[in-house]
Design a protein around this nucleic acid. Structure first.
Length: 635
RNA sequence: GGGCCGCUAGCUCAGCUGGUAGAGCAACGCCCUUUUAAGGCGUGGGUCGAAGGUUCGAAUCCUUCGCGGCUCACCA
């Protein structure tokens, strides 16, 4: 028994669906016989006036006036009004699914309905369908958001995008355009003789980038694998296999920061073209952007960060050395020593000494130049230090045949002539791996299988890799990546209200989706601590006690408890779960989950393990009751 | 990870220096043959994100936690 409005609302609507079932209706039929979209009718009124049509969609408004009822049906194309007259609408007939005027109250805003009737105009001039019959297609049992404001809460919009696009259909446009963009990209490459391949997302080694990967496990093979951080090594295998022009529109997973231009899961169009070098790609990518701009969006000028960007004009092409020189006046191309280069850096106010001249150049570029590149710009000639997979330039072997695209101050693609000299490639990788310049976490596994492919030989090859989301942000003029990803990644939540409606224990739900824990029993844990076989990874531990209260044990005469401790900080990046935690209160447990219970638990935790962890600061959270016999007594 | 901000009914929002939690939409009941944010009369609806604390008294003040946003850092 609840007095929450939503729960009442749901009950009332479910009751209506049940009433329909009693009357012989199916509130969730599979068949629908739409003949026209709303927009087709409003766009072609002259031709359709007086003709019979069937429309279907979600009912967005519903105004009853005695013997007249008005409403709006919304489908993918738009909205159209229903103008329902009691003297025209056929009577209820459950064998046909028709709902008559007397039963219209069983239909309400949010439901999906089908209406068949003549196209007409009302006295006020609105193009409408005057139904002879109305069928319920799908009963909705939750209220839609406020009709005028829609969803405003950013979190609500991101978590329930379907409601946002229902209430504000114009918000579908960006996503429709992104879909068309993908189609156009495929057309562009297909027309140029490229073949689309699927490359693996589950990869036994991660390569082709320096990002941190996601790790997962294949039970059938008994080994850990990584989610792709890149697909290029597979595309190169395809070139070696004899395909000259290949591409993939791949999913990339990088276990790093999330912000308005980074998402853990994103996509790129990545190509490989044999018998060409990076100069070919400069033309290719320029053509690609122009093609998408013109064919999907019908224009070439877009507003990025408040500034106009024109994709039609030939793009500026500049070497990284020149770009830095133009902005800062410093020519790293003539630097003779790292010391000299670092001195230039600190003169610019960048006090992070780099390990090589090349890295200094890159640092200066990132700090001083990147944000200034608003119009599409191709920056080429990266230092070899940061280009392990690229070919050096013939005339300047310290620089790579590589270029990046910058638009609106944002990097929008990375491209180079692929290093296909297997001996040099191996050398570079090995020295890179052993280099003390790199932090341990940046060392990537060597892909010897790939080196072997290169040893058999891969013809001269070059690839481009523009990010789909960044492209979408440019073309749809959004400045937040969440607005071009329909389902951005968010922490799972279960509202208390839904927990009540679905009768789910919220904590059990959250537990189930939580990361994998390390498990051991209290007995094992204490004995390992006692032997000093294990020690905490951090000096600050966060401990969450989970407890079940089982009520009074009549034989022992005391209250029974069970549970576990969840310890963060003991094992790096993992939670340790110590099962078999219980308390034996010398007194009755407090009636409520208050500070008193908390302090009993806290002293119990400290008694059981605190002694073995003398140098640890233990932060013990409030107890989380998984079961409380006192609350469940009636069940 | 740091800083700042937010979280009140299904939705959109009020609620000031602490004093009985409010409105609109939505819902429920009744009236209404041209409405379109329809209208009129009436009714019901809350764990104020969570837990502690201060207080005679907390949505309001304090602490911790949760979720989110913006921003900085990190990051091809």
């Amino acid at each position: 028994m609840s007095n929450k409005p939503l729960i009442e609302f749901r009950k009332i609507r479910i009751a209506k669906a049940e009433k329909l079932v009693e009357m012989g209706f199916n509130p969730y039929p599979s068949r629908c016989s739409r003949t026209h979209y709303a927009k087709t009718i409003t766009d072609n009124y002259a031709a359709l006036e007086g003709k019979s049509v069937t429309v279907a969609g979600r009912l967005m408004s519903w105004r009853k006036h005695g013997a007249l009822t008005f409403g709006h049906i919304q489908d993918q194309s738009g909205r159209i009004q229903l103008y329902i007259r009691r003297d025209i609408l056929q009577d209820t007939d459950s064998s046909l699914g028709n709902i008559g005027y007397a039963h219209l109250k069983l239909i309400e805003v949010g439901d999906f309905v089908e209406a068949a009737g003549k196209v007409t105009r009302t006295e006020r001039g609105e193009i409408s369908v005057q139904p002879d019959t109305i069928r319920l297609i799908t009963k909705s049992i939750r209220p839609l958001p406020e009709k005028w404001s829609g969803l405003r809460d950013r979190e609500a919009v991101l978590r329930r995008r379907y409601l946002d696009t229902t209430m504000q259909p114009h918000k579908k446009e960006a996503f429709e355009n992104i879909s068309r963009m993908l189609f156009a990209i495929r057309t562009f490459f297909n027309e140029r003789g490229f073949l689309e391949f699927h490359t693996p997302v589950l990869q036994p080694l991660y390569g082709g980038g320096t990002a941190k990967p996601f790790t997962t496990h294949v039970n059938a093979l008994g080994c850990d694998v990584y989610l792709a951080i890149s697909h290029e090594l597979y595309l190169k295998r395809l070139i070696s296999a004899g395909f000259d022009r290949v591409y993939t529109i791949g999913k990339y997973f990088r276990n790093e920061g999330i912000d308005r231009s980074h998402h853990p899961e994103f996509s790129m169009i990545e190509t490989m073209t044999a018998y060409e070098n990076y100069e070919y790609n400069m033309d290719l990518i320029e053509d690609l952007f122009r093609y998408v701009a013109q064919n999907v969006f019908g224009r070439t000028v877009f507003v990025v960060n408040g500034q106009e960007v024109d994709f039609a004009r030939p793009w500026k092409r500049i070497s990284m050395v020149e770009a830095v020189r133009d902005v800062t006046g410093v020519d790293f191309g003539v630097c003779r020593s790292v010391e000299e280069a670092n001195a230039h850096l600190s003169a610019m106010g960048i006090n992070e000494p780099q390990a090589s001249t090349g890295l200094c150049l890159v640092k200066a570029f990132e700090e001083k130049v990147e944000a200034t590149l608003i119009s599409p710009t191709l920056v080429y000639g990266h230092p070899m230090d940061i280009s392990p997979l690229a070919k050096p330039m013939d005339d300047k072997p310290d620089y790579a045949e590589r270029f990046e695209i910058f638009i609106g101050g944002m990097e929008c693609g990375d491209n180079w002539s692929e290093q296909n000299d297997p001996v040099k490639l191996l050398e570079t990788w090995k020295s890179k791996q052993q280099s003390l310049m790199l932090k341990a976490e940046e060392i990537h596994p060597l892909d010897y299988d790939f080196i072997e492919v290169m040893e058999y030989g891969m013809p001269p090859t070059t690839g481009i890799g523009p990010g789909i989301e960044r492209m979408a942000m440019l073309f749809t003029e959004q400045d937040n990546i969440d607005d071009v990803i329909f389902f951005p990644l968010m922490r799972p939540v279960l509202s208390p209200l839904n927990a009540e409606i679905y009768r789910i224990d919220e904590r059990v739900y959250v537990e189930r989706v939580a990361e994998e824990d390390i498990l051991m029993t209290m007995e094992e844990f204490v004995s390992l601590l006692k032997d000093k076989s294990i020690s905490p990874a951090a000096s600050r531990l966060t401990i969450r006690p989970y407890l079940r209260l089982w009520g009074k044990d009549t034989t022992a005469g005391r209250e029974k408890t069970s549970g576990y401790l969840e310890i963060e900080g003991f094992i790096r990046d993992k939670r340790l779960r110590v099962a078999g935690f219980a308390i034996t209160p010398g007194q009755a447990l407090p009636a409520k989950n208050t500070g008193k219970l908390r302090s009993m638990i806290e002293s119990s935790v400290r008694d059981s393990i605190g002694g073995y962890l003398p140098h640890c600061e233990m932060k013990i959270h409030d107890v989380i009751l998984l079961h409380d016999a006192r609350l469940h007594a009636g069940q």
